[in-house]
């Protein structure tokens, strides 16, 4: 049974790790150095936020709006941590490691083992988290080096690769009608704001949509 979990973890780690190539390339396209791309992957280690930083900086946004957009996206990891804490039950250095590895994939694989018991859930979390960490950083380096070697990013279509990567991250979240409505309003509002607000601000403004949805809308 543990073997099956390790196999799941490895396949998730490899698949997600490959996104790292897209991130490394996107970072270079946004004028980050290879070192900067790698440091972001090693320290921040949360894909969507990392894409947000380079996306906003690449569009000419300020450091503040880049950090704000990335941090808003990182809030979901708090909720994953909340879910994982009673399962992992770790303290001290182990808790710091667990926090750093708390991402979409490690949480998802762990929660998927719910019927198999706590130790299997822990195995799923650690194996997936460590696996993704290794591959994500390795492929970030490869993507950044590759994009540097290619030269002019637009000529290779990297300008389209970044929003395509965002779309790929968004797609699995559009499973409910509410999610699709939130996404559509967000696209509409954000596009409308482009001519009026500094780069990065239209993205941050869209955090208001789920806020209104959750706090002003009817009790459900």
């Amino acid at each position: 049974m543990s073997r099956a979990i390790l196999r799941d973890s490895l396949s998730v780690a490899l698949t997600v790790g490959v996104y790292g190539i897209a991130f490394g390339a996107a970072a270079v396209e946004a004028d980050l150095s290879v070192l900067q791309a790698c440091v972001l992957s090693l320290l921040a280690f949360t894909g969507a936020s990392q894409f947000a930083v380079v996306g906003v900086l690449g569009a000419g946004g300020s450091a503040l709006s880049a950090v704000t957009a990335a941090s808003l996206l990182g809030i979901r990891n708090s909720f994953y941590g909340l879910r994982m804490a009673p399962i992992l039950q770790v303290r001290g250095a182990k808790r710091i490691a667990a926090a750093q590895l708390t991402i979409d994939e490690s949480t998802a694989v762990s929660v998927a083992q719910e019927d198999k018991g706590l130790s299997e859930m822990r195995l799923g979390f650690w194996a997936t988290g460590i696996g993704v960490y290794i591959f994500w950083n390795l492929f970030t380096l490869l993507g950044a080096l590759g994009a540097t070697a290619l030269g002019d990013p637009a000529a290779w279509g990297l300008d389209a690769a970044v929003p395509a990567a965002f779309l790929g991250l968004l797609w699995p979240r559009l499973i409910s009608k509410s999610a699709r409505i939130v996404a559509l309003i967000s696209i509409f509002l954000c596009t409308l704001l482009i001519p009026f607000a500094p780069a990065g601000v239209p993205v941050i403004a869209c955090a208001l949509i789920p806020f209104v949805f959750a706090f002003v809308g009817g009790r459900k």
Partner: peptide, 20 residues
């Protein structure tokens, strides 16, 4: 709020990076 926040932000990023 936490459930729909990433959806809204990712959709906004797609919009800005595609049309801006």
């Amino acid at each position: 709020f936490a459930l729909y926040l990433p959806t809204a932000l990712l959709a906004a990023l797609v919009a800005v990076q595609t049309l801006g």
